[in-house]
Design a protein around this nucleic acid. Structure first.
Lengths: 235, 235, 235, 235
DNA sequence: GATGAATGAGGATTCATTCAT
DNA sequence: GATGAATGAATCCTCATTCAT
């Protein structure tokens, strides 16, 4: 018999009910933010959609921004969690890369509303909160980089590739999904992912080297200081 | 040589003066939108930065949204104009593709403020105005597609690539630049572009084909109905 | 005796309270509109007079025009309601006509503020709202007409009278009351009404159908202090 | 050869031109006030309709209210001038009364725009200006009264009538014309006037003093399409 | 847990008016 | 005579937030 996870002092079912209600409201809020944008959404909109009055929201939350933060944090953490599956994936670097692409896109698709809110509204968060998300988010980019570095070490990824820049581009590409993915589209997520995998892996793999000698200038290895946020970070 | 009949004394310099002042204000507005976001920017912020009073802005503009629209439209049209240079570029498809990547990134870098405002705030535009931009914007994606199709016809681009999806991914990748590009970064735009070119071209080129057969599921050829917006479109 | 199931504890007194407060504010607004005119009255004026802040008005109303509409609608419906008493009045057509004049004037006098606001500001209402009022309002004129027509049928009203035109003139005359009626004037409403009755009935009655002397109460000769402006004056 | 009336020191034609232009602008303003109401009309509306810019109006006028005052004053003086014709009319009191009704209505019809503006907007004038108009205006009512008193002296007007009240009612009736008169209506002004004359004269005349049948011109029975609003309707 | 009533600061916008040119 | 650019005060309205009940 599982115990209620935390804070069990009393009124366990009561507390859980509040928790559930709160989650309901957050879901409602996410959907409205998704549809109208954060700034264009009033607390009244949220309250009405959740079936209570404006003022009553403040039982669950302290400021309107709290809604946004909770939504973004949850979305972000979910995205980071997909990395775990990539880590556990058995295969070489290229296969892991393919796995990452698939997981990333799958997560987007399954969480389109919150993911979109995250990407659209990240910047309205307070600097402090932005920093919290950003810190976690760097881990994602770091993971991609380490994957690419490992691939170079293993010889399956072209050595002339600038890992920092390419990882940014790759993540940027995947992160654009919320802008074009259509829930009822003609392709399954898997099909979309496969297509991306094809191009990305071919792009970075060493055995498929394309002679870009002519067009590429000599690359110094200096890093781009403030690269793309990680998976879901956008600032 | 006859002089233009009337309006000559005042109108040209006069009209130009309003025009110039208006442009000044638009530039100021763009910068503030860039720094604080559209919704967080008050008309008073703009007015003060431009050296007039709140109300005086309305001599140049009818609504606050007009500022945004003007900024976005200009940014968007500038981006579309880069396609002309790609069209005129002499070379095969892969070289043209490389050219497009360079021009795209160069435009972003040189117009970071307006481009960023465009991407961040596109959705606050009224549906009508969004539609205006979107309509023009489809041309960009269409161009990329025709380029890839031509490459497949010429045999330089892998035939198994789904042009629609890949063009979306490619454009999505380039469009993410505003999120990570740092004006004073260690890399020149050319270097960054070269890096992207390397990966992209390698990714789509047929001669460097990577065997993705294992990872790719069977692809049906149905199109994605409403794929990513064009270059600068985002909705 | 079962109590109404829910909402009973709070709702009735609660709802009534808002309702009452709203009515208070409407009354205050009517008075200020009466004194300064609608356009010259700011929401701040209303709020201050009602003892709240500008913004707080919008808890009770959605736009400033709502105040006006509510005032006018109430005034209008009250006026229409007087017709009921005329309908129930026992007597011949001429006596009913006399009754109508008295009721009409009595209503004006007892509701001078709202009636005046109605007449002064009717045109600032939106076309939609104007139409709502107007639709109801036609009933009044229609009633007067049917009364006059009935009188012609009965032979008590001169057959050569154009009922449509005369009813307009009659109503126009009564409706001018708000322009000249003085609350503290030397004449009672009854006396004023009698005077009008005399002239109107004499004006429309067939020869000999109405005994002027009988219907008039004893008139004192005191003047109405601030009567209607002259020809075109209206204040 | 008539000399320019006043202020002939110099630039007679120049001054006249300004005068004419000013009158043009006043006419334009009157029409817009008539259509939209004074408060809803901006100086820009007037300027545009007159073919110049907002600021340029102030060459002709010092404040927006000046437009209104000029319009109302002109309208008012024109109305008063009709009294002259009534004074000169040869006939007994009842005939003079009939003449007054006709002149009054004729003036309204021929000056519907300015008359309506006068009635609608009189109250937005400053107290000082209102007083100016009002002072002149009392003469009108005074004239009507003296007419009725004379009629009582001559025995053609019923002695039991309260002249003050009845004159108010009579004028109120005539003054309501702007609310219901329709330029393209089925009745001529004369026909309308005759109808009013019939009732009014019958209403005030001593028994048998006035032959109703004789004074009325032949009446067609066509209806007035959009007559006065109902009781409290005013549009 | 939720409501109802209000707050108070700030928002975009309007507009009569001015005045140097 | 008219323009163009700006003023500055006022306007209606929005909205996140509070708190006694």
């Amino acid at each position: 018999m599982a115990r209620p996870p935390r804070d069990t002092k009393r009124a366990p079912s009561g507390e859980r009910k509040v928790f559930r209600r709160r989650q309901e409201i957050l879901d409602v809020a996410a959907r409205i933010f998704y549809e109208k944008g954060y700034d264009a959404t009033s607390t009244r909109d949220i309250a009405e959609a959740a079936g209570l009055l404006k003022g009553s929201l403040y039982y669950y939350v302290e400021t309107k921004e709290d809604f946004l933060f909770e939504i973004i944090r949850t979305s972000h953490e979910g995205a980071l969690a997909t990395l775990e599956r990539v880590r556990l994936f058995e295969g070489d670097v290229l296969q892991k890369l393919a796995c990452l692409v698939r997981e990333h896109l799958a997560y987007f698709v399954q969480n389109l509303v919150t993911t979109s809110v995250y990407f659209r509204e990240f910047r309205v968060l307070s600097p402090e909160r932005r920093a919290i998300i950003a810190a976690e988010g760097d881990a994602y980019l770091e993971f991609v980089r380490s994957l690419l570095f490992a691939g170079q070490r293993d010889g399956v990824i072209a050595p002339e590739i600038d890992v920092r820049l390419v990882s940014i581009g790759l993540v940027g590409m995947l992160n654009s999904a919320w802008l074009w993915y259509q829930p009822g589209g003609a392709r399954s997520t898997d099909e979309i992912a496969d297509e991306f995998v094809k191009v990305i892996v071919a792009g970075v793999a060493s055995n498929g080297a394309f002679d870009t000698a002519g067009s590429a200038s000599k690359l110094r290895s200096a890093a781009v200081e403030r690269p793309v946020a990680a998976l879901p970070r956008q600032d």
